[in-house]
Design a protein around this nucleic acid. Structure first.
Lengths: 152, 152
DNA sequence: GCTAAAAGTTAGACGAAGCTAACAATCTGC
DNA sequence: GCAGATTGTTAGCTTCGTCTAACTTTTAGC
């Protein structure tokens, strides 16, 4: 991807290469952003199924702070993408893939949260920041967070 | 910011308040997401002005990894929002407000980056993750990051 | 078991962010 | 100072995420 036609980077200044790296970084961030909402939904759905026994659109709407039609459209997209299944006027179920994603997200969220608290942050702010940060943490960083959170 | 109108939380059950907190968190994250792109642009524009003497759309496009028309549209929005000024076929300038935002972003980015490196992350991954994380770090967390990065 | 409330859906609008294609202006090299 | 390359703009399309308004279905209370 990111088809770079590099005619004449022979005499290229470091500028050009730096630009590429930067562009790739931003493209990665954009890709992450596209998945954020799906991850938030899937994570929330898993949680609702766990705590309430089922995931109803109305509860998703309340917890996400959006209106019902927004939820409906997003759920359609999630279904299209193979993360959930749903029937009209019924509650939502995760597919195998959805469940796997939810588990991964929960794990990631957990680590980021514990890390922040361990750093000294109050739990409420930690929860808030974790929500935003968790989608942008690489495997490597996550490992460091986990190590820090677990150290004695 | 994040104007919260809390009418009638008097007789509210814990459910609702939990839901509200969650909803507020997500709304905060969504608000942050809306600003991310603007912040990325403004930060990049400041950097280009500093290193190249001017910020040309073509360079912005290259470093952001998007096409020229996308940059044009985004710059229009930034101009509308008072962050930059621009004239047709000319390069871009930051307004006072834009400069302030750029400075703040740079500061934030700097701290997150140093923090990650201090944690033990390789500089390249650190740069990448900082790009994604910096927009989701509260003042409180930033302070802790700074303290950690600076400790002896 | 009917009726009213709650939940869900459909339709349609809007703005943001991305793209390609086509055109216009500016800059550069002779 | 003109031609061709580079840069910038405009038009128009797509997808996503949000909304309101209006409708249908399901659920719950009597």
């Amino acid at each position: 991807m990111t088809h770079v036609d590099h005619q004449a980077i022979d005499a290229a200044e470091p500028e050009a290469r730096a630009g590429d790296a930067r562009a790739e970084a931003f493209q990665g961030v954009r890709a992450a952003r596209r998945n954020e909402l799906a991850e938030d939904y899937v994570e929330l759905i898993a949680e609702l199924i766990h705590t309430q026994g089922e995931a109803r659109p109305v509860d998703i709407a309340t917890k996400m702070g959006v209106t019902a039609p927004t939820v409906a459209k997003t759920l359609d997209r999630l279904a299209r993408d193979g993360l959930i299944t749903r029937a009209k006027y019924r509650s939502v179920f995760l597919t195998e893939e959805g469940r796997a994603l939810a588990k991964e997200c929960r794990h990631r969220h957990e680590i980021v949260l514990r890390f922040l608290i361990r750093l000294g942050l109050d739990p409420e702010t930690a929860e808030h920041d974790a929500e935003g940060i968790e989608h942008h943490v690489s495997e490597r960083t996550l490992a460091l967070f986990a190590a820090f959170a677990n150290r004695s």
